[in-house]
């Protein structure tokens, strides 16, 4: 993964080595197709078909009365969409609120995870004794099974028995009442912290791999010219990591915006309004009320939004990189 994302700077895509002259088919010409076949089949089964099923479902009135026999569910056209987008109704207002919370959540998590990941990667760029140890240590949150990591946070964030309140109030002697971390408005900050904890090792890993490809001579040359570390970082490290960053930020954005596991494990089935992330909101809207048509419509809206954002992001960045 890291190798492919760091190389495109040097290799220019588009020039295919094969197919200069047309020859009669060689023995074994089918082999590539045979090797690709299973992948395409599974891609269809796992991704494409469910996606189109979801889009089709969003036009149905698929409530519990029809769930055991989908074929009988009546087509309602755009009704699921109009309900989801009518921001004066309870359903639409809930979706909009959840969308805005998710936007704020994503900005904070991706931004801070990137900053921490970058700081750690730069700090470990030069060789020193114990570097391997720190590299391993930093990857622990990423290597832990997701459920185990988040459930540990859940215990730590309990009001009376949690380690966080124990540390803040019993050890540090902060005054006042112990707050709840998993309910009310604090829930937002709790989930931001937990999500950053889970995400930053990935940023660290990708950036660390990217840093390996920057030749040391560049830094030496700039040091001769009198560049200080901050200048080196902004004028050498950052531009040379551009291809990595482009992919990294997009991937982190998509993951975070779609994050389901973190709120699900942290809050259980009753999420506080402040931690009502959109994937989880959609899950509640469809699974807990058995209204799969409405849930599918919300998912399609989310898909469209993410497609537009990713499209614009790549378009803008690619154009700039071509100009450069």
């Amino acid at each position: 993964m890291s190798a492919t994302t760091t190389t495109p700077k040097t290799s220019s895509p588009g020039s295919s080595p094969a197919g200069k002259t047309r020859k009669p088919r060689q023995a074994g010409w089918w082999l590539p197709y045979a090797l690709l076949g299973p992948a395409i089949l599974f891609e269809l089964v796992i991704h494409v078909i469910p996606m189109f099923t979801g889009i089709w479902m969003s036009f149905l009135r698929l409530t519990k009365a029809f769930i055991s026999n989908w074929g009988k569910a009546p087509v309602t056209g755009l009704q699921n969409y109009t309900v989801a987008l009518d921001f004066n109704s309870a359903v639409g207002a809930g979706l909009l609120r959840s969308f805005l919370i998710t936007c704020a959540f994503t900005l904070l998590v991706v931004g801070l995870a990137w900053v921490i990941g970058m700081a750690a990667a730069v700090a470990l760029q030069k060789e020193f004794w114990g570097r391997g140890f720190f590299r391993t240590l930093f990857l622990v949150p990423y290597a832990l099974p997701m459920y185990a990591g988040i459930i540990a946070w859940k215990f730590m964030l309990q009001k009376d028995t949690g380690a966080v309140n124990h540390f803040l109030f019993d050890n540090l002697g902060l005054g006042g009442d112990k707050p709840f971390w998993l309910i009310g408005d604090n829930a937002f900050w709790s989930i931001v912290v937990v999500a950053i904890w889970r995400l930053w090792p990935f940023a660290f890993l990708m950036l660390m791999a990217g840093l390996q490809s920057i030749p040391g001579e560049v830094y030496e040359a700039s040091a001769v010219d009198g560049a200080k570390p901050l200048r080196q970082w902004s004028s050498i490290t950052l531009p040379m990591l551009r291809p990595v960053n482009m992919v990294l930020i997009l991937v982190m954005f998509l993951w975070t915006f779609n994050d389901f596991n973190t709120p699900f494990v942290l809050f259980g089935t009753a999420q506080p309004p402040a931690g009502d992330l959109i994937s989880f909101h959609i899950y509640n809207a469809s699974f807990l009320t058995w209204n799969f048509g409405s849930g599918a419509a919300m998912s399609v809206l989310l898909l469209i939004f993410l497609l537009i954002v990713s499209g614009i992001y790549l378009l803008v960045l690619n154009r700039r990189s071509r100009r450069a």
């Binding site: 109704s89 309870a90 359903v91 809930g94 009320t289 409405s294």
Partner: peptide, 12 residues
């Protein structure tokens, strides 16, 4: 409760 009622009505 009004919100809850609307949600139930919308799902029904």
């Amino acid at each position: 409760l009004k919100t809850a009622q609307e949600q139930v009505a919308a799902a029904g």
